[in-house]
């Protein structure tokens, strides 16, 4: 937005900017939730190990946390298409600008 002189004229750059913000938000959200789920699962596993449970029993006990981590890993299914859409809009913006640019 700043590199173009902060204007509101062209839709494609604005869509690219909005897509970028969504991708940033999505990336940060996924990262925070995944880290949080992993940390929760590891804490629970340590607690169960301290209680002397067998690995199979621990795995059984951790099933809900494992499920959360698996779900969060699937966040990428949302995040990567958003990123791809953002890159598509950037490609259009940059391509159109360079195509009409004065190269002299």
């Amino acid at each position: 937005m700043v590199h173009g002189g902060i204007h509101f004229n062209a839709a494609i750059p604005w869509l690219a900017l909005i897509a970028m913000l969504i991708v940033v938000a999505s990336g940060l959200t996924g990262r925070v939730l995944l880290s949080s789920a992993r940390a929760g699962m590891e804490a629970k596993a340590a607690e169960l190990r301290a209680q002397g449970l067998t690995p199979e029993a621990i795995e059984e006990q951790l099933e809900p946390q494992t499920l959360v981590v698996d779900v969060m890993k699937r966040w990428r299914m949302v995040h990567l298409p958003l990123t791809a859409a953002f890159l598509g809009l950037v490609a259009l913006h940059v391509g159109a600008t360079l195509a009409l640019w004065s190269w002299r």
């Binding site: 173009g4 002189g5 204007h7 004229n9 062209a10 839709a11 494609i12 869509l15 897509a19 990567l80 298409p81 958003l82 791809a84 859409a85 953002f86 890159l87 598509g88 809009l89 490609a91 259009l92 159109a96 600008t97 009409l100």
Partner: peptide, 23 residues
């Protein structure tokens, strides 16, 4: 997603280039 963004954006540019690109 990439193809959709480029395709829809391209359609927008061809229909209303002023709206889509004018700086």
């Amino acid at each position: 997603a990439f193809a959709l963004a480029v395709g829809l954006g391209g359609v927008g540019i061809s229909l209303a280039p002023g709206q889509a690109l004018i700086p």
